[in-house]
Design a protein around this nucleic acid. Structure first.
Lengths: 130, 130
DNA sequence: CAAGTGTATCAAGTGATATAATACACTTTA
DNA sequence: TAAAGTGTATTATATCACTTGATACACTTG
């Protein structure tokens, strides 16, 4: 229960992966799910850093990656805002999905699962979705 | 084309992930796919290290993890051998598959894909399996 | 002007990974 | 019995990604 709620987003950090990566994916998740509105302002670097008890540098790294993907727009002196372009969000969402699918199939094939094996396994999980 | 074939297995190392992890997964893949027979001897630590141009220590780390999973049996002075227990292989295979499925669904849900979205996406790929 | 933004830089520390060298216990084979 | 080939352990060293902490600068708003 190491949760932090701030700026309409939920954060939960652990040591399994780099902190900047977790911050990045959890903000991206909020955007993709529409939990945070387009054009909305997200917490400042310092503010989020303090809330998460990490360094502004680490938050900064996550914010910069978001901006590279055009998911946010930063205005010097004002703050960081979610993009107003819905197409950008949709594109990123589809890219992430495609990557996830690709990685999934590669992993399954590497342990000898055929296409039919996978389909059957997915249908099986269909009766009991998580 | 940085491939190495040895002991009936194919290796290809890069810098994207730890070397010991790549050696581990590629041997495990050979076992799961049945590309290497049960009970068969795999290259010695020093032999594989030389072939892959890495340190025996790194190969050793991969071998130890394989043995922890009971996928191999090591006999001091003789070498390392694939387990003769088919059930062990099948169990590991299913565990890996379950993990892959779990991770896939979590990743998809985190970007706002519902169960139906995923099913549709899978079927769509069904017409064009990779 | 003051406070709050993003941004850049630097020094330092930590942990995982990998290398290199050496040594020991064991088994097989000549 | 001796030698060669096994797995295994230890130690020292190096590198890299990540993170922290501190400081500073440019900009915007009130």
């Amino acid at each position: 229960m190491n949760e932090v709620h701030i700026g309409g987003m939920r954060f939960e950090l652990d040591l399994s992966k780099p902190l900047y990566e977790q911050v990045l994916t959890q903000i991206r998740s909020s955007i993709a799910k529409g939990e945070i509105a387009l054009g909305e302002k997200i917490p400042s670097v310092r503010e989020l850093a303090q809330a998460l008890k990490i360094t502004p540098n680490t938050v900064m790294r996550a914010y910069q990656e978001l901006e590279r993907d055009r998911l946010t727009e930063t205005r010097r002196g004002q703050g960081t805002f979610i993009t107003t372009n819905a197409d950008t969000v949709e594109t990123i969402r589809n890219n992430l999905a495609e990557e996830a699918v690709q990685e999934f199939f590669e992993k399954m094939h590497s342990i000898g699962f055929t296409w039919d094996d996978i389909q059957q396994l997915i249908r099986q999980k269909g009766g009991n979705p998580s």
